[in-house]
Computed example of a mutant assay.
Amino acid sequence: MPVVLIAEDDEDIALILSRLLKRSGYTVLHAPDGQRAFDLAIAHRPDLVLTDLGMPVMDGLELTRSIREHAELRDTPIVMLSGHLHPGDGAPVRAGVCVVLLKPCPNDKLREVVNDLVELGAHGHSGADSACPARWPVSV
């Protein structure tokens, strides 16, 4: 089963996301802050990271940049799910996020994006030959 790492400090949201993804056939790991998520990513090499923006210790942008700078993680697909971004904010895409979803995001849209990126698999995130969709935002 593909592994999705959820970086989310709100335990209720993390529980909802975990249940949704487990029902969709994914193995789910959860970290309540960006630093612990990064440590889990190093240890488990997830197929996809689903991160919130605002988290303690290391936020979602810092987590994304850390993953992109890590030789063995840099090609991991990353989805940012946030209620604190404004449409068109380019910071997530510049950091290396593949897709930004705005909260509240319909479950079917989240499943579609996760499924598409897991199917795409590890891929480059910079340069002309990048396979990254870098879509912002998918859902408003």
Score class of each variant (00 low, 15 high):
residue 99 V to C: 14
residue 72 E to M: 08
residue 35 Q to N: 03
residue 70 H to Q: 10
residue 15 L to F: 08
residue 83 G to R: 11
residue 5 L to I: 00
residue 121 G to E: 06
residue 108 D to V: 12
residue 16 I to G: 08
residue 84 H to Q: 13
residue 25 G to I: 07
residue 28 V to M: 12
residue 95 A to P: 14
residue 49 V to A: 10
residue 116 D to K: 14
residue 86 H to S: 14
residue 26 Y to R: 05
residue 82 S to Y: 10
residue 30 H to S: 11
residue 45 R to Y: 04
residue 51 T to M: 04
residue 89 D to P: 07
residue 20 L to R: 11
residue 38 F to K: 00
residue 94 R to M: 13
residue 31 A to L: 06
residue 20 L to C: 07
residue 118 V to L: 08
residue 86 H to E: 15
residue 15 L to K: 11
residue 72 E to A: 13
residue 51 T to Q: 05
residue 32 P to C: 01
residue 99 V to R: 13
residue 73 L to P: 15
residue 7 A to G: 07
residue 40 L to C: 09
residue 63 L to C: 01
residue 24 S to M: 02
residue 85 L to I: 13
residue 52 D to E: 11
residue 7 A to S: 12
residue 35 Q to R: 15
residue 90 G to I: 07
residue 39 D to P: 04
residue 25 G to C: 09
residue 111 R to D: 01
residue 46 P to T: 02
residue 117 L to K: 07
residue 5 L to R: 00
residue 6 I to Q: 07
residue 48 L to Y: 07
residue 28 V to S: 10
residue 70 H to D: 15
residue 30 H to L: 05
residue 65 R to M: 10
residue 11 E to D: 14
residue 102 L to N: 11
residue 111 R to S: 03
residue 97 V to Q: 07
residue 83 G to W: 11
residue 54 G to D: 05
residue 51 T to L: 06
residue 101 L to Y: 05
residue 40 L to F: 08
residue 33 D to P: 01
residue 82 S to M: 08
residue 56 P to I: 02
residue 45 R to G: 03
residue 92 P to R: 02
residue 58 M to L: 14
residue 14 A to K: 05
residue 57 V to H: 12
residue 93 V to K: 09
residue 60 G to S: 10
residue 33 D to W: 04
residue 76 T to I: 12
residue 65 R to W: 02
residue 45 R to V: 09
residue 36 R to K: 14
residue 92 P to I: 00
residue 95 A to D: 09
residue 103 K to S: 09
residue 84 H to M: 13
residue 91 A to W: 01
residue 37 A to I: 00
residue 44 H to D: 10
residue 49 V to P: 03
residue 102 L to D: 10
residue 28 V to I: 04
residue 52 D to K: 01
residue 61 L to Q: 05
residue 46 P to D: 00
residue 81 L to A: 01
residue 118 V to Q: 05
residue 69 E to L: 12
residue 79 V to H: 04
residue 29 L to I: 06
residue 41 A to C: 07
residue 18 S to Q: 15
residue 26 Y to S: 09
residue 43 A to S: 13
residue 36 R to I: 05
residue 113 V to H: 04
residue 24 S to W: 04
residue 94 R to L: 13
residue 51 T to S: 14
residue 6 I to Y: 03
residue 58 M to A: 08
residue 51 T to E: 06
residue 56 P to M: 06
residue 94 R to D: 15
residue 59 D to W: 03
residue 57 V to N: 12
residue 81 L to T: 04
residue 35 Q to K: 12
residue 97 V to W: 00
residue 34 G to W: 02
residue 27 T to A: 14
residue 53 L to Q: 10
